[in-house]
Design a binder for these strands. Structure first.
Lengths: 338, 338
DNA sequence: TTGTACGCGTTATCAA
DNA sequence: TTGATAACGCGTACAA
């Protein structure tokens, strides 16, 4: 086991000097610095997290979290993952401050992000894909705050790490699943949430690209529900009325409950095959009623837990993640394996 | 933050005394013991893992691992999960000794298990479901060695923890999946591995129970392939010849490649719907050839990682897991979301 | 029965 | 530019 002490002995200097070299604190003669660095490299020195954690206990680093989770039950499990990790890491002095918001208003999210100025050592956020948010996050990065985007990523931003799912692949998977269930012929209606959410757009693109391989598939209409259950209900209902031959419904975002209720309200449309995302309670209810049999699952719990784990490793152990993106797989679930 | 030192000060005793109380080392006056315990409880004392880890570095605890992984590519990812965790925890002094074996011979596994006598502080094993194995593991438990069963559990054993999948549910899921793909009519052929592997038996039972809800489903035959690809090929072929009207094949264990090759060898049986477990390379190859479109996935990487994490938490931080079983979900995968 | 003192590896402070 | 020393929380050998 190679420690600072050992390096110090072998180099004939004190531990303090080695520490100054390894942590680039300056005030070291270039020659000794070179010697220490060489020795550290040769021995493959790795700082001991336990020692670091112990010494760092005075710091009590703060993780500031901003989630657009209010009224969105998808995030319930994300938050459970965060809470579990918070408990596990609390003993290392890690502090967590979770702030939630409703909807996707840039101003609101900016305000919450700014409220962490000066206090947070790391930020975890599911960002709205907006320039001003990107700027704010870049600011944090420039000030040495570690920024993790969670569940959805943001364009033109130098965030340190993304934890979430692959939305494009989610769309591909949904299309392939419909092909599996319906064979080579399908007339598809698509329900989107809000178009400016990056992930939802990507799902649509993934779906469309995968569809190119199936000549018998075509899209009848794409509607938006603004992530609102009532709109979702009304507009889906109208779409179903407009296209009596529709035999597949792809719900690419929230509003699953409203859309499914629309299907339920038209009992004659029994043979419609529905694919949606996430196993929130209302969706499970619709599965039990037989409106849809399969959903695509994004591992919400693990998303929350992993983001916290990365923050912990960075803040407490000074270990950067191996990759800058942690993509959790899209899984297919039925009632049986929820 | 509540530490031993703080408790000592508040109780007016020394840190050594508090330590003796909390770690039940005896040699403490009952009254002071009570006082210390009360204070610890009141303040909600939790030992600091960093301190523990640091102090425990002299111990260098050993995790002994026995896997029936040779010739079984399913375990490749399990071992990856183990290795990744090994690297992460090496710095805490955790040592890992992995021993692998081929096949399911009780004697072989017993020998490997016994080879850890006296050296291992924890054992991770995918046990053969046999009395003598159970006894050996019970012995270890009695001697204070922490025993974790991995991937498959064992009956009549006091192992501390199980990490793996729910095999019964795997069978249910497979059946439900066939129902989804085929509708309400199916004539099913079933391929088993070896009957005395607990998990494989459970999968069959789960499949059968789920099938009771589908009157149009019936099982034509159940064959065993001894986890051997060649047997799997020959016997599956024979079964296909014997039952020309078979339209579903449920491969409940290993030998997926052989069974799929049997299907491939009879091009006239194109409409056969196949469901199998695990995404090993040969199975993926068969998926690409279109022999089967869906598999059920058991999170092999996470199984290995989680088992190591539990061993780490116990040996280094003295934290017992919250549950005695960690069940990873059965997931449904297609080529698109592998 | 109890207290003291040291070591684990790292960081921070102070003195030289 | 460097070295010595104390602190973090825990475990333990040893002294009282």
């Amino acid at each position: 086991m190679v420690t600072i002490k050992k390096i110090a002995e072998l180099c004939g200097v004190s531990r303090g000097t080695v520490d100054r070299v390894l942590n680039k604190r300056g005030r070291v003669k270039p020659e000794t610095e070179a010697a220490v660095l060489a020795m550290a490299k040769q021995l493959g020195y790795q700082p001991n997290p336990a020692g670091k954690a112990l010494a760092a206990r005075k710091h009590r680093p703060v993780v500031g979290i901003v989630l657009t989770s209010e009224g969105n039950p998808f995030f319930d499990d994300v938050i459970k993952g965060i809470k579990t990790a918070e408990e596990r890491y609390a003993i290392y002095g890690l502090q967590v401050e979770l702030k939630t918001m409703r909807g996707y208003h840039v101003e609101d999210q900016l305000a919450l992000l700014e409220s962490f100025r000066g206090t947070a050592n790391a930020i975890i956020v599911n960002p709205i894909n907006d320039e001003r948010i990107a700027e704010a996050l870049n600011d944090y990065v420039d000030q040495g705050v570690y920024v993790i985007t969670l569940n959805t990523d943001i364009e033109n931003c130098r965030r340190n790490c993304y934890v979430g799912s692959d939305y494009f692949n989610g769309g591909e998977t949904a299309c392939a699943l419909l092909e599996l269930l319906l064979g080579e012929q399908a007339s598809v209606g698509i329900v989107l949430g809000v178009r400016h959410v990056l992930g939802h757009r990507l799902r649509l693109e993934g779906f469309q690209q995968r569809m190119e391989r199936i000549p018998g598939f075509h899209i009848l209409e794409v509607i938006e529900n603004n992530d609102d259950e009532i709109y979702s209900y009304e507009r889906t209902r109208k779409m179903l009325q407009d296209y009596p031959d529709m035999n597949a419904l792809f719900i690419a975002a929230g509003g699953v409950y409203g859309a499914c209720r629309a299907v339920l309200s038209m009992p004659e449309r029994k043979k419609l095959t529905v694919v949606a995302f996430d196993s929130v309670p209302t969706t499970v209810e619709m599965m039990k009623k037989g409106v849809l049999h399969t959903i695509i699952y994004q591992h919400p719990y693990r998303q929350g837990h992993k983001a916290m784990d990365i923050a912990f490793q960075y803040l407490v152990n000074d270990i950067k993640p191996a990759c800058s993106t942690y993509i959790l797989k899209n899984e297919i679930k039925m009632l049986e394996n929820l």
